[in-house]
Design a protein around this nucleic acid. Structure first.
Lengths: 165, 165
DNA sequence: GTACGGTTACTCGGATACCGCATGTCCGAGTTGATGTGG
DNA sequence: CCACATCAACTCGGACATGCGGTATCCGAGTAACCGTAC
């Protein structure tokens, strides 16, 4: 009896992050199909496609159909934060959803927004805000630069692996 | 097609937080059974009991069986942080689980811990650390004091409602 | 050689199954308090 | 009146169902490139 598995982020987030990073090394105008992107890490093609669709809806990626089609970044990597990618996959909702159980409690009032007044709710929101702030501070360009600093061959190697160039 | 529901924290966390706060107003030595605690917010008794069991295992609460039995705080409210309660319910695992997909990627090595080297993984961990730090900074005593400041009648009202005193 | 139309192959996109975990429920073990009886 | 043994009720604790949402898959719509043909 060990419930050590709750509150798990979708594994699609990890796929999305790495895939976006790879796309950040592709020169502008080039599109890469899902099959190539999935091949890099041996991911299930159809499911990765589904995740990328969410990124397109969020504006992080742009898609093109037909031959030579595929995905590319939707805007400059300096304007794409890690939070953008996480939110695109996981949704904008907080992990902690205040159900406002105080309303069912003693002296609960229907006209009060307990999400704002409840001390506990405020603390939880504040913590999540710190998390979001941290993620929003890191752009895709930052991550790309950090990786290049350690592995200068990464850009070239990635382009070759993706079949562009 | 709107997946706006992922990464949800168990609703039991909210129950646990409010219940622990209520118990923080009970004078030491008194135990309150699940039925009373659930009654306050109209929660399902058996399921709340299950959550409280997790808190007992974590040392946040102590339990007593038999008549006059029930739950009480396991230690001083100043030594119980919101993080303690959240971890007790959700488990110690991070929300973002690095699957180390880099290992399956180009040049992936079996002897490397990508949880530490992967730049993306590090960023995600750093963000979660900020979240944890924020939660660990708030003790149950802090929350109790904050509520009392706004509603001075809360301690007495809670004790009455719980049937103690 | 060039322009154009048809064909083909390739891509994304959303609709559709499957499965695991969180949710919800139940009954049994243990303990305490009460009660009745005997001294 | 007091001590003790028995009884009964109450509590937690873990084992057992269930439903929903994430995971995984598939096929169809649309498009761009290619190729062959005609000029």
């Amino acid at each position: 009896m060990c419930n050590i598995q709750n509150m798990r982020m979708s594994e699609g987030v990890e796929w999305a992050l790495h895939t976006c990073l790879n796309l950040a090394w592709v020169e502008e105008g080039q599109a890469v199909p899902t099959s190539r992107l999935a091949e890099v890490y041996g991911l299930p093609v159809a499911y990765l496609n589904k995740q990328l669709q969410a990124l397109v809806r969020a504006g992080v990626l742009r898609s093109t159909t037909g031959p030579r089609g595929g995905f590319r970044l939707g805007r400059d990597p300096r304007n794409i934060t890690l939070l953008d990618i996480v939110v695109a996959i996981e949704g904008p909702e907080d992990a902690f959803r205040c159900q406002e159980i105080l309303r069912s409690g003693p002296g609960g009032r229907a006209d009060v927004d307990y999400r704002k007044t409840c001390v506990i709710s405020r603390s939880m929101r504040q913590a999540e805000l710190a998390w979001r702030t941290e993620l929003a501070a890191q752009t895709l360009a930052d991550v790309r630069a950090a990786v290049e600093r350690r592995e200068p061959s990464a850009p070239e190697a990635t382009r070759v692996r993706l079949g562009v160039l």
